[in-house]
Design a protein around this nucleic acid. Sequence first.
DNA 1: GCGCTGCGAATTGCATACTGTATGTTGCCG
DNA 2: CGGCAACATACAGTATGCAATTCGCAGCGC
Lengths: 230, 230
Amino acid sequence: MTRVLHDGEALVRNASVAATELIREAILDGRLEPGTRLKEEELARQLGISRTPVREALLMLQAESLVVATPNRGAMVRVHEAEDLDDLYQLRALLEGHATRRAATRISEPEIEVLRESCERFDALSPEEDLRELVRENLLFHNTILDVAGSARLATMVRKVIELPLVYKSYIWYSPDQKRISVHYHRQIVNALAMRDAERAELVMKEHVFEARDLLVSHVRAHPLALEGH
Amino acid sequence: MTRVLHDGEALVRNASVAATELIREAILDGRLEPGTRLKEEELARQLGISRTPVREALLMLQAESLVVATPNRGAMVRVHEAEDLDDLYQLRALLEGHATRRAATRISEPEIEVLRESCERFDALSPEEDLRELVRENLLFHNTILDVAGSARLATMVRKVIELPLVYKSYIWYSPDQKRISVHYHRQIVNALAMRDAERAELVMKEHVFEARDLLVSHVRAHPLALEGH
DNA sequence: GCGCTGCGAATTGCATACTGTATGTTGCCG
DNA sequence: CGGCAACATACAGTATGCAATTCGCAGCGC
C-alpha cells in the first residue's frame, strides 16, 4: 500500500475541508489515479484523522463529481470516458464563452493590463521545465476573465468544469506547438476584450476551448485505459 | 418549536439520503423558510436518526446551495437576494436555451407527442385548485426537453438551477394570465422542436425563462423580506 | 452608566464504538 | 467435479460521547 497522502500538521484548520483539499489535490495531480478505490479507513489513517471528516470530504468531492460512490461499497476516483469529456467541454465552451462575452462589456483598463501580463508570462514559460507553472498561469488567465464577468454562479460552475479534466496529464496540452497556439488565442481574446468586441471575444474563447477538447478527447481515445491503475 | 419534518418509517433505506430528500422537500415547499437555522440535533430528533446522517444531508444540500453554513456556527436555509436570482436565471436561460437547441436536432416523434400531451394537461389545470400539479407538470415539460437534449451534465446542471427558485411561492408564476402565457410558450417551443427549428426553439425557451425571471425578481423586490421567518 | 471580562449554555467538530451489508471462501451435498 | 449455502472478513453506515468553539449574559471595575 503506497502512501499517496502525506499527513501531518497540514491539518491545521478544519479537518474535513483540509481532507477535501488534500484528496482533491492528490486526484488532480494524478497521485490518485482514476479508478482507485478510496477506502475511508485507509485515507483516515494516512491523514491522521478519523473516518468522520474523511466521509465528509468524500461527499464534497462527490458533489464536485471528482469521485463516484455506490451505496455500501464506497467511493472511487471517477473515470471519464471520451464522450464524457466531449460533453464536458461543450458545456465549458458554452459557459466560458458566455462569461467572456459578459467580460467584454465590463472589463476595465487595469484588468486588461492584468490579462496582457498573464499572456507575457505564459509566453515566457517553457513547456518542458515549467509545466506546473504553465498550468497555473493558464488557470489565472481564465479565472481573471471569470471574475470580470461578474457572475458568482457562472464563475463557480465554470471553475468546476475546468477543474475536472485536469485529472489528465497536462503535458497533453502543452507541446511547444500547442503552447504557441494557446498563447495566440489568449492574446486574441485579450484584444477582443480590449476592443469591447463581445461577439468576437466569445467566439475566440469557444474555439480555444474546443481545441483543448479535441486534444484531450483524441488523446483519451488513443490511450483509453492508460489511466487505470495497473 | 414547531415540527416541520414528520419522521417515521420513511427512513427505510439510507438515512442520509432520506434525510437529504426530506429536508430538501421541506425547504422547497417553504416549511423551512429562507433564513431558518438548521440545528443538527433538532433535525436529528425530528427525523428520528442521529446527527451523523443529518450532517451529511446538510453537506449535500450545501453543495446544491440550498443551504449555507459557516464553520462552527451551523447551517441555515439560504436567502436569495434579487440580484442572486437575476444571475441565476441568466444562467438558466443560457443553459436551458442551449439544451432546447440540442433537443431540436435530436427529438423523435414520440417525444414530441409526450410534450404535446404535457401541454394539454398543463392547459387543463386550474391555478387555484391544482397549483402543485401545475408545478409538477411544468417540471415534467422542462425535464423532458432536458432528457432529449442528451447531455447528462447539462441536464443535472439545469435541474439544479431550476430547483432553487422553487423555494419561492409558486403562485407568483401562475396567475390565470401567467398560466395562459406559459402554455403559449410551451406550445411554441414544441412547435419549433417539431419543425426541428433549433434557433427558434432556443429563442422561445430563453424568452420563457426570462419572463419567469422578471416575475420572480419583481416580486422579490416588492416583498424583500416577506420570506424571513418573523 | 458603559464597557470589559469571565463564566456557562448551546451547538458544532471530531473520534470511536457498534451495526449492517456485501463479497469472497470454504466445505458440504448433490 | 460443480453448484450452493453458511460463514468469515472487510468495509460502509449509524450512533454516541467528548472536545472545542461561539455567544449571551452577568458581574465587576472604571
